[in-house]
Lab assay of single mutants.
Amino acid sequence: RNLTILSLPEDVLFHILKWLSVEDILAVRAVHSQLKDLVDNHASVWACASFQE
């Protein structure tokens, strides 16, 4: 069985995303439609995003 980041529970993905910069979140968003939906549909992803580079 192949395990990917998409195999992780949504709460784990949120925990990972909250540590990323805006640039990295946008890069993750571009990788897969499921990740794009996760980022686009949950404001909590952006609430913790680091807007300082």
Rank of each mutant, 00 (worst) to 15 (best):
D37A: 14
D37P: 00
L17Q: 02
D24L: 03
L13Y: 09
S44H: 15
S50T: 11
V45D: 15
F14P: 00
S50D: 14
E23R: 14
A30Y: 06
D11V: 10
R1P: 12
E53W: 06
W19D: 11
V31M: 04
S50P: 12
L6V: 04
E10I: 05
L13W: 10
T4P: 07
R1I: 14
V45Y: 15
V28G: 03
L38S: 09
E10S: 10
V31H: 00
Q34Y: 08
T4C: 06
V12Q: 03
L38M: 13
T4H: 13
H15M: 12
S33G: 06
C48I: 09
K36F: 02
K18A: 09
I5Y: 06
Q34W: 03
R29E: 01
H15S: 10
V39Q: 08
C48G: 15
I5E: 04
V39G: 04
L26I: 13
S33C: 01
C48A: 10
I5T: 03
I25M: 09
N2D: 09
S21G: 10
V39N: 04
I25D: 01
V12T: 06
L26R: 11
S33P: 11
K36Q: 05
K18D: 07
V45W: 14
S21L: 01
P9L: 03
L26S: 06
S33Q: 04
L8A: 06
L35R: 01
P9A: 02
H15V: 06
R1C: 10
E10R: 13
H15K: 15
P9Y: 00
S33F: 02
K36C: 00
S7L: 04
K18L: 06
H42F: 07
E23N: 09
K18T: 10
L3C: 09
S44V: 06
S50I: 05
L38E: 01
L17F: 14
C48P: 15
A27K: 11
V31G: 04
V22D: 08
S50W: 07
T4A: 02
K36G: 01
H42A: 07
A30T: 13
L8E: 04
A30G: 12
R1G: 10
A30L: 15
R29C: 05
I16Q: 00
S33V: 06
I16F: 00
L3V: 07
A49R: 14
V28Y: 00
F51H: 12
E53R: 13
R1A: 00
V28N: 00
V45L: 13
D40C: 00
S7A: 07
V22M: 11
I5D: 01
K18M: 10
S50E: 12
A47Q: 11
F51N: 14
D40E: 04
S7T: 08
A27T: 14
N2W: 01
K18E: 11
L38D: 03
S21M: 02
L6P: 04
E23P: 10
Q34N: 07
F14L: 15
H15N: 15
C48V: 08
C48N: 15
L13S: 04
N41F: 04
A30K: 09
A49F: 04
L38Y: 11
V22G: 06
L26E: 06
N41E: 13
F51K: 10
A47N: 12
